[in-house]
Amino acid sequence: MTEKQAASKPVGADLILPVCAALYALYYVWSVWDFPAEAQFSGIMLAGLLLLLVTIYLIRVLRGLASGRYSMGFGDLFGPRESRRNRSVFFCLMLAALVLVPWLGFTLTTFSFLASSFIALGVRPFWRAVQIAAVGGLVGWFFFIFLLGTHFPKGPFELLVEALI
């Protein structure tokens, strides 16, 4: 690694947000194309502003790349290497919980999400993770469903409790 490369600032990750924002702005403009002027006005103004800002930023990045001050690395986007695996498993568990909640219901989803996350993040021994997750799930059930009666999807646990009470 040359000295110059080591000193350059990785900006690859910094581009994700402006690029996404610009894409959304373009999609937005497309989506209002046939609408009455009042419905278009603010969106098109904003899209123009956003695209202008992003263009300026891209110019800044390109100049930086050209002069060697910037590089296209992803830098610290994913955080420290040693905990990356745990954290990505945690994120996947989050997505899994979203998919499962209509079937498992609130309580079981919360319990399984908590228990599996604790385990994935390294809580040992297992029984401790399960215990804390169970307490979390039950307290959540008591507060949100039993006391406040919110309309969460019902799963086996909620239906069982309903049948019992």
Binding site: Y28, L46, L50
Partner: peptide
């Protein structure tokens, strides 16, 4: 970007969905 996301949804006058 926040403003752009905030502009999502039906417009206030004609209720046409945007973005």
């Amino acid at each position: 970007f926040g403003l752009m996301l905030g502009a999502m949804g039906a417009d206030h006058i004609y209720a046409t969905p945007r973005g």
